[in-house]
Deep mutational scan, measured.
Amino acid sequence: GMDVRRLKVNELREELQRRGLDTRGLKAELAERLQAALSGPSSG
């Protein structure tokens, strides 16, 4: 899988935006949010 901790802030935001998620917050928050999205149930 993707290691969200290795991504830069702008990369985290890009991935979040692609999934329609909130791109605001600290890098740690963005990484946590993206990780949750990646490990969560895949819809679609």
Rank of each mutant, 00 (worst) to 15 (best):
G1K: 13
G1A: 13
G1D: 09
M2W: 12
M2T: 07
M2E: 05
M2Y: 12
M2P: 08
D3L: 11
D3K: 11
V4C: 11
R5K: 10
R5S: 13
R6G: 07
R6A: 09
L7P: 01
L7K: 03
K8L: 07
V9F: 13
V9P: 04
V9S: 05
V9N: 03
N10P: 08
E11Y: 05
E11R: 09
L12W: 01
L12F: 01
L12A: 01
R13F: 05
R13H: 03
R13A: 03
E15Q: 09
E15F: 07
E15D: 01
E15T: 03
L16K: 01
Q17M: 13
Q17I: 06
Q17V: 06
R18Q: 05
R18L: 08
R19E: 02
R19N: 03
R19G: 02
R19K: 04
G20F: 04
G20L: 03
G20E: 03
L21G: 02
D22L: 06
T23V: 07
T23S: 07
R24W: 07
R24N: 12
R24T: 14
R24I: 07
G25I: 02
G25F: 00
G25D: 01
G25W: 02
L26A: 15
L26K: 15
L26T: 15
K27D: 05
K27T: 06
A28P: 07
A28W: 15
A28E: 11
E29G: 03
E29K: 06
E29L: 06
E29S: 05
E29V: 10
E29R: 06
L30A: 01
L30Q: 01
L30F: 00
L30V: 01
A31M: 15
A31T: 07
A31F: 09
A31L: 15
E32P: 02
E32Y: 09
E32K: 14
R33S: 01
R33T: 02
R33A: 03
Q35K: 10
A36H: 09
A36E: 08
A36G: 06
A37R: 03
A37Y: 14
L38D: 02
L38S: 03
S39G: 11
S39H: 11
S39F: 11
G40S: 12
G40I: 11
P41D: 12
P41W: 13
P41K: 11
P41A: 14
S42N: 13
S42V: 11
S42M: 11
S42K: 11
S43R: 09
S43T: 12
S43V: 12
S43H: 12
G44K: 11
G44V: 12
